[in-house]
């Protein structure tokens, strides 16, 4: 679905995707064509990675945070500002020789500016296979309404 967004919508989208990837390499993820980023965005490759999607009824936030417990997340939402924090401590084996240590260890926090119609009263969270999925209801009034032409 996310690869689809950049992949096949338009004949030009493949080129936009490459451009976007190049921008990511230079400015970090979340960069727009002018290199403008959200003030609370984190550099590319920060832990945990986040994807956000919307449906007419809800916003879906995916947090790619493997190796944690469902209780390890501290989730709060103020108006449309969603904040998720926690810690993943990876203990080292003192007797071992390490060749690679690429996995994140330590405290993390991601603050996400959701669209204004996000309803902090209706948030559901679920953790499975290392992905924290948040489903945030959208306020009724903001939903597009079909207007009948008489």
């Amino acid at each position: 679905m996310f690869e689809g967004l950049w992949g096949y919508e338009h004949p030009l989208s493949g080129q936009f995707r490459r451009l976007e990837e190049e921008l990511d390499a230079v400015f970090g993820s979340g960069a727009s064509l002018t290199g403008t980023r959200n003030i609370r965005s984190l550099p590319a490759g920060s832990f945990p990675a986040v994807n956000i999607a919307s449906t007419p009824e809800a916003l879906l936030v995916y947090l790619f945070a493997p190796g944690l417990d469902a209780k390890a997340f501290d989730i709060s939402m103020q108006q449309n500002l969603l904040s998720i924090s926690g810690a993943r401590e990876i203990s080292l084996d003192d007797a071992a020789t390490y060749y690679r240590r690429e996995r994140f260890s330590g405290e993390f926090r991601r603050t996400i500016n959701l669209p204004d119609d996000a309803d902090p009263e209706r948030v559901e969270a679920k953790y499975a296979n290392g992905i924290l999925t948040l489903r945030i209801g959208r306020r009724e009034s903001a939903r597009p309404r079909q207007i009948e032409v008489r």
Partner: peptide, 19 residues
Amino acid sequence: LVFEMAERMEALYADVRST
């Protein structure tokens, strides 16, 4: 990578763009 999907879903932001 398998997501929990929903009908009529549109991506708003994606750090992860491969599955």
